[in-house]
Simulated scan of single mutants.
Amino acid sequence: MINPSTRGFFTSPGERRIRDHPVISRPHSKDEKGSVYPGVGFITVPELSWQYFDEVSEVVEIGQRVTCSVLCCDTAQGEARISLRALQPDPFQEFADAAREGHEFCGTVTKLVPFGAFVRIMEGIEGLVPLDELVSMPVETPEQVVQIGDRVKVTIISLDRDARRLLLALMTSGRRTAGSGTDASAPTSPKT
């Protein structure tokens, strides 16, 4: 059963509907040796999936049986913290194996924030284009340059594997990309 002290974490209608019901009724958890332990556990929202989602119900359903990895057990409190995403490969790490600074990608603008725009360059891989990397002229908001859903060409300016952060620069004709020293109109071949 979901711990009642977590009620403040649930904000969307789907999460409010789920909060009073067990999200995971009887998960099967595996330890490092592959042993299976049937039981009840709690999965925090970040441990559900590597992918971005708006509703918990996009990942799990009420009463669904799942196989998870045990993160920790508190026998005094009778709680088990478990993870679905621990059993899935991290798409960012796979991406980081092949991607390097200067590689170019076409992507879709997914979110605008006061300090820049997020661009999805592959399924499960999004990076931030900081406001000062959107155009060479200063702008106050990202809406002055791009809109959600726009297809854009970007280049990697920084990739931090440990923090799982990807910084991108928007490429426009004739603009030099940050860190690459090449003209954005010059063709390069990304290794993805």
Results as ranks from 00 to 15, higher is better:
178 A>M: 14
26 R>L: 13
10 F>D: 10
192 T>F: 02
17 R>D: 09
151 R>Q: 15
36 V>H: 00
94 E>K: 11
92 F>Q: 04
16 R>V: 15
181 G>W: 00
191 K>F: 12
158 S>Y: 07
78 G>Y: 02
132 D>G: 08
21 H>K: 10
163 A>K: 15
168 L>I: 04
98 A>V: 14
190 P>T: 02
168 L>E: 01
188 T>K: 00
32 E>S: 09
164 R>Y: 05
136 S>T: 15
108 T>W: 08
89 P>N: 06
86 A>P: 07
56 V>P: 06
81 R>D: 10
77 Q>E: 09
158 S>D: 14
14 G>V: 01
5 S>H: 10
33 K>F: 13
135 V>G: 08
17 R>Q: 10
165 R>A: 03
191 K>L: 13
87 L>V: 12
79 E>F: 14
126 E>C: 05
58 E>W: 03
130 P>F: 02
114 P>F: 15
164 R>H: 08
53 F>T: 03
73 C>Q: 14
115 F>Y: 14
61 E>M: 07
129 V>E: 06
123 E>W: 10
127 G>H: 00
70 V>N: 00
63 G>N: 03
130 P>L: 03
89 P>E: 12
136 S>C: 07
181 G>H: 02
60 V>K: 08
62 I>C: 05
34 G>D: 03
21 H>Q: 13
41 G>P: 05
102 G>S: 01
37 Y>E: 05
94 E>G: 11
47 E>L: 06
56 V>I: 09
98 A>G: 09
120 R>C: 09
3 N>P: 10
107 G>F: 00
172 T>Y: 06
182 T>V: 02
159 L>I: 06
59 V>T: 08
32 E>N: 08
152 V>H: 04
16 R>M: 15
14 G>K: 03
63 G>L: 02
3 N>L: 13
8 G>F: 11
177 T>V: 00
186 A>R: 07
27 P>K: 02
31 D>K: 04
157 I>N: 04
84 L>Y: 05
179 G>F: 00
12 S>Y: 03
36 V>Q: 02
43 I>R: 02
169 A>H: 00
95 F>V: 08
98 A>D: 09
140 E>F: 13
158 S>P: 07
50 W>M: 01
117 A>I: 01
71 L>S: 04
132 D>K: 07
47 E>C: 04
44 T>E: 13
55 E>P: 08
136 S>Y: 11
2 I>V: 15
133 E>Y: 14
168 L>D: 01
192 T>H: 01
163 A>N: 13
7 R>T: 15
32 E>A: 11
108 T>H: 10
90 D>L: 07
47 E>W: 05
106 C>Q: 14
181 G>T: 01
15 E>N: 12
157 I>V: 10
181 G>F: 02
143 E>V: 02
14 G>Y: 04
124 G>S: 06
188 T>V: 00
